[in-house]
Simulated scan of single mutants.
Amino acid sequence: MNSSIFQILPTLEPFDYSQHFEGQFKDKEWVLINGINDKKVTYIFKPNNVLKIVDSGTTIKTTWSFINSNFLSIQSEDGIQLVKIYYKGQDMMVMNQRGSDDYVMFVNQTNYDEDLETEEDLRRFLHKKYVQRASELIKKHQFYYIQNSEEFGPFTVEELNIKVQKDELSHHCFVRDINEDDYSSRLRIRDLLREI
């Protein structure tokens, strides 16, 4: 995976040992996404600098160590690799080998009920995690709507939905996010309702 990962995931957060080690790093089952259809590889960073790599059912124990900032060293078959780690929320981790433009991506399977074995499993995982989360955010967010050249609001999506169901409001009405200045996004109530 090349450096375009930063265009795909622009909000990557650098690994910070004091913030991430206990809750997001240690003892988590990080499934390697690159090549998941060929074989499943899981990395588990254990205390005392032990790294368990489970590769198609075979467990390899090696070592890792914290260097500085967000750099780690990982002992592999090819020798010691220095990697920089980034996060996208608590569910995705990206590693970049020092001096390389290539990236590997991992998904945290620890709290997921199903095994991640294929790209289809991965799609379901991402859909469940991010589409549901986005839906919850949309439900809580507030919007203004415009009707007969007059603006009303702000209202939550649920409040707008009630107005539509009572025929007080058309689902074709334009809405704007409370953080937007105008209706140039051309978003309609029906678009919001589709997302929840």
Rank of each mutant, 00 (worst) to 15 (best):
I80F: 09
I33T: 13
K26L: 11
D55A: 11
S100Q: 06
D101H: 07
E22G: 09
M95S: 05
T58W: 05
V94S: 02
I44P: 00
D78C: 10
L9R: 08
N48W: 00
W64K: 03
G99Q: 04
E13Y: 01
I85F: 10
K39H: 10
K46N: 05
Q7T: 04
F6A: 02
I67F: 02
W30C: 04
Q81D: 11
F15C: 04
I67E: 09
L9F: 15
D27C: 07
S69H: 08
V83Q: 13
T59V: 08
G99D: 04
P47A: 09
N68C: 09
G23Y: 01
D38V: 13
I33H: 00
P14D: 03
Q19W: 00
Y86G: 02
V50M: 01
S73E: 15
G79W: 03
L32K: 11
Q24A: 12
N96H: 06
G35A: 12
I67K: 14
Q7V: 00
R98Y: 12
D27I: 05
E29L: 12
N70D: 03
N68Y: 10
E29V: 08
I67V: 15
N68G: 04
Y17S: 01
D78L: 11
N48K: 02
F25Y: 07
G79L: 03
N70W: 02
T42L: 08
Q24Y: 14
E77T: 14
I85N: 04
Y43H: 14
W64Y: 13
Y86R: 01
D101K: 11
W64P: 05
K28N: 13
S100W: 03
